[in-house]
Design a protein around this nucleic acid. Structure first.
Length: 574
DNA sequence: GCCGTTTTCGGCCCGACTGTTTTCAGTCG
């Protein structure tokens, strides 16, 4: 059992215990343990082997025993006993908006409802409204929730939420009387997927901005609307909420709404130690006096902390680092001097090499790499060795036309084939400036086999970069079951660079693994994987993922200037 | 069930909004 599977088991236990009516802190303990396992960059099996399970935050004696049982036997007696008491299927009811554990428990005990279809028929036949605390409106809400669930079951990838949020921001910022509007929540923290769009406006009077928000033409229904908070659902099922606060309280409110919850808990602890209580509105002194913060800097300053970038606010040690003055100088988009992974019409790109290079130049970059697919990736029109040679001529022609305004590297995105071999012989690879290797097939192979394939590519002296190492596709596909510790070690040893792919469907490496990789001395590159000039825009998502992984500019090869990068390539034996 | 530079026992963030209540419970973030 891997980290994710064990975390899922604990989350289910938490849900079932909560429906059962167990004390909330026991429920929270299981959730915290699950979260902690997901955050773990290394394999829990390793901690298990070394009997160090309780060193994982949130894991004590009881949960360590359960992890032990799960790893040793693949089963958990406690869980099996629990699902005898509370049907396992009840957890799916919790995915219905406005339906939580209390009502799920009530429906189950009173009406024997244990599945979504049970719930739907009970709601349609009017049985729910007879229960205590339920009425017609609650019943209608459940039906509406079921309907919205059928349209949207998963969290929304950031690539979908981002443009919607930007439009909303622009629109709300134009409302008279509004001083600022900012993103908050997981979207501001730039998580790969978001639950909804959180927005925060500063205004003395909330009515105008609330109106503009609720009357947006894309809004299909208004879920709630008050003086300070409103929440809506768009036609595509995506939800957004807006808080409005007076400007003098905006900093506190923005900090609070940005989260994460865990980060905020950490700040509250600090506040308590200073005899302050921190709410979403202001600090409160014991004598009842308030400390208002118009901006976030003041919130952190009041706690004797430097401002912490939103991408770091996940309670992964950032508060402690801030206290010690050890916050990393995070990578910024402006640090990027070029892109090392882009496609042209030679394979599945939409534009010529010259067009892609010109677009890169327009962004102020000093270099870019043309890295089309290799022939095994037939669906993408991969290049044969001969075509690759012919492509070189076109690269040189484009370079002549562009002069020294931008440098074009000739590279390739080469398949690591399912049998572990590489798609070109060494002599072909030797003629290229940059060789990227990537897995696109055989992603479901057993851990050892797929890891060995990757290691084989890393050990090849011509391979410079591994693209989107894990191969996940958000939200459809999990990545390969790679032994990343071993891969990071090999990459560091052979000087092979690992990519953070900026395509919002990939964001691979992710934040947790990127952080682990740099800890182990691996160099990274943040690439667009652009198939058209617009694809370069995606780089902001890759940069955000790097920031979430505590990555500094110096650890990213495409922040280096051209000479430095060329020197590095030369040193690798090209 | 976890955790500890005020605690090995007693905390564990807290307020807005909604719908059902006639003073509050449930959900959400």
């Amino acid at each position: 059992m891997n980290n994710r599977e064990i975390a899922e088991t604990f989350d289910k236990i938490a849900d079932l215990l909560e429906i059962k009516g167990e004390v909330i802190f026991k429920v929270l303990a299981y959730r915290r343990a699950a979260e902690s396992l997901r955050e773990l960059a290394s394999d829990v099996a390793g901690h298990h082997q070394q009997a160090k399970l309780t060193e994982i935050p949130g894991v004590g004696k009881a949960i360590a025993d359960k992890i032990d049982e799960l790893i040793s036997t693949g089963k958990l007696g406690f869980y099996e006993k629990l699902v005898q008491e509370v049907p396992e299927t009840l957890v799916e009811l919790l995915r219905v908006p406005d339906l939580g554990p209390k009502k799920a428990g009530l429906f189950w005990r009173e009406l024997g409802i244990s599945t979504l279809s049970d719930l739907e028929s009970a709601a349609k036949s009017g049985k729910l409204r007879s229960l205590p605390g339920m009425g017609q409106k609650s019943e209608a809400k459940i039906l509406a929730g079921l309907e919205s669930l059928s349209r949207r079951t998963l969290r929304t990838p950031i690539g979908q939420a981002w443009p919607v949020a930007q439009e909303l921001l622009a629109k709300l910022r134009g409302v008279p009387g509004v001083q600022t509007v900012e993103l908050a929540g997981s979207l501001r923290r730039m998580k790969a997927t978001v639950g909804d769009i959180d927005l925060l406006a500063a205004a003395e009077d909330s009515h105008a901005v609330m109106d503009a928000f609720a009357q947006d033409p894309e809004v299909s229904r208004i879920l709630s609307r008050g003086e300070t908070k409103a929440s809506v659902e768009f036609r595509n099922g995506l939800r957004a909420q807006l808080w409005v606060h007076p400007p003098q309280r905006f900093g506190t409110a923005l900090q609070y709404a940005t989260g994460s919850k865990e980060h905020n808990v950490r700040l509250r602890e600090l506040a308590q130690k200073q005899n302050l209580s921190l709410s979403d509105q202001a600090f409160l002194r014991v004598d009842g006096r308030e400390i208002l913060c118009a901006d976030e800097q003041k919130v952190y300053e009041t706690l004797d902390l430097p401002w912490i970038p939103a991408e770091l606010r996940e309670d992964r040690g950032e508060v402690q680092a801030a206290r010690q003055g050890n916050l990393p100088e995070l990578l910024e988009l402006a640090d990027i001097k070029g892109d090392l992974h882009a496609h042209s019409t030679w394979s599945d790109g939409k534009n010529s090499i010259l067009e892609m290079a010109k677009a890169a130049r327009k962004r102020g970059w000093n270099y870019m790499a043309v890295t089309d697919h290799s022939h095994s990736l037939g669906v993408a029109g991969g290049l044969s060795a001969e075509e690759l040679l012919a492509q070189r001529e076109e690269v040189e022609k484009a370079q002549t036309e562009l002069g020294d305004s931008i440098h074009i590297f000739h590279g390739v995105e080469m398949e690591i084939r399912a049998d572990g071999s590489l798609d070109y012989p060494d002599e072909v690879l030797a003629g290229l400036d940059i060789v990227i290797a990537a897995l696109h097939s055989g992603l479901r192979q057993p851990r050892q086999q797929v890891t060995e394939r990757m290691l084989n590519a890393i050990r090849n002296p011509h391979v410079d970069i591994i693209a989107h190492p894990v191969g996940r596709l958000i939200p459809d596909r999990e990545g390969a079951d790679l032994d990343l510790e071993t891969i990071f070690k090999a990459a560091a040893e052979h000087g092979v660079v690992l990519e953070i792919n900026s395509d919002p469907r990939r964001l691979d490496l992710d934040d947790v693994h990127a952080r682990r990789a740099i800890e182990m001395g691996v160099l990274l590159t943040v690439n667009s994987d652009a198939h058209s000039p617009a694809g370069y825009d995606l780089l902001q998502f890759g940069v955000a993922m790097a920031r979430r992984g505590w990555v500094k500019a110096s650890q990213v090869t495409n922040t280096w200037d051209l000479e430095h990068l060329q020197g590095w390539i030369k040193k690798r034996g090209k």
